[in-house]
Amino acid sequence: MNPLSVVVRTVCDLFAWFMIVFGVNVLLHGYVTPGGGFQGGAIIATFIAFLLVAYGGRRVASRVNDRLFDLFEEVGLLVFFILAFLGLPVTFFFNFLAKPLAESAGGFIPGVGTVALMSVAVGLEVTGALSLIILTMHRGIRMFRGEDLEPETGHDR
């Protein structure tokens, strides 16, 4: 891969970490402001794309562990389904933690109940899935050329 200019790489390296913070902000405040699980997870998954631009495939493949994103995916889906099944005495997806507006002040879990928790769970799942898709595709395209990770002279500072 031809090396990009140093400006592009530095800006991508800088912005990647801000993308994580912004994505977590969108994710955690999904029940108050626009956003939610899917949007926040997609924003966090942009981190991997920025890292691929900033450092190149070889260093990202040596630093980033796939097991972490596997864990995100599994934990997110399991928490989502468990929260859905916990409302089963009434119906599937019953919001058993919700409180009406009059008494919803305070507390560790906000008054929306499972909406906030499911938002975080789906955000974890989307983060893991999209990051794994990008990482796996970027690593797997070398399968057809039958070569190892290419040296990528310009990216490794």
């Binding site: 108050v32 956003g35 699980g37 919700a98 009406p100 929306v112 109940g113 909406v115 938002s119």
Partner: peptide, 15 residues
């Protein structure tokens, strides 16, 4: 009023 969801879109999506 029911589930004190300020963002109704998220309430519809997840509840």
């Amino acid at each position: 009023n029911d589930i004190s969801a300020e963002n109704i879109v998220t309430a519809i999506v997840f509840d």
